[in-house]
Simulated assay, not measured.
Amino acid sequence: MLDKLKRIFNIPIKKYIVKEFKCFVFLIIYTVATLLLPTFVSKIIDKGITQKNLRLATLYSIGMLATGVIVVIFQYLQQTSFYKLGQELTMCN
């Protein structure tokens, strides 16, 4: 089946599998970071504000900020890598 696809499209399959894996890694990191954001909000409220612990509230706020930056960076990387892969697959014929 892969030989038939390779003949049809005349593309090196391994090259695109590696690029697809890179896209998938960016997607996983973005998804995990996005899932962590609500956890930080609950930690800030439960452990920082209700217990009046300013140090923990600050610590969780910094963690939330860092996670937010990671979300933005990996969302950009994920979108651009999928776009580039799609363009390469479209232009290969």
Rank of each mutant, 00 (worst) to 15 (best):
M1G: 14
M1L: 14
M1C: 13
D3A: 05
L5Y: 12
L5E: 12
L5H: 08
K6L: 08
R7T: 14
R7Q: 15
I8Q: 10
F9C: 12
N10P: 04
N10L: 05
I11S: 08
K14V: 09
K14M: 08
Y16F: 11
Y16A: 06
I17K: 14
E20G: 15
C23S: 12
F24A: 11
F24L: 13
V25S: 08
F26L: 04
F26G: 00
F26D: 00
I28G: 01
I29W: 09
Y30H: 05
Y30S: 04
Y30R: 06
T34S: 03
T34Q: 02
L36H: 04
L36V: 09
L37E: 12
T39H: 14
F40D: 07
V41P: 02
S42Q: 10
D46G: 04
T50Y: 12
T50I: 10
T50F: 12
K52V: 11
N53Y: 13
L54N: 11
R55Q: 11
R55H: 11
A57H: 00
A57E: 00
A57L: 03
T58L: 07
L59S: 02
L59G: 02
Y60N: 03
I62P: 04
I62N: 00
G63T: 04
G63Y: 06
M64G: 13
M64Y: 12
M64N: 11
M64V: 09
L65Y: 09
T67H: 02
G68M: 01
G68C: 00
V69I: 13
V69E: 09
V71D: 07
V71C: 02
I73W: 03
I73H: 06
I73R: 00
F74L: 07
Q75E: 13
Q75V: 01
Y76R: 15
L77F: 14
Q78I: 07
Q78E: 13
Q79P: 07
T80C: 11
T80K: 14
T80W: 09
S81I: 04
S81A: 06
S81C: 07
F82E: 05
Y83K: 14
Y83I: 10
K84F: 15
K84C: 14
L85I: 07
Q87M: 13
E88N: 05
E88T: 07
E88Q: 05
C92K: 10
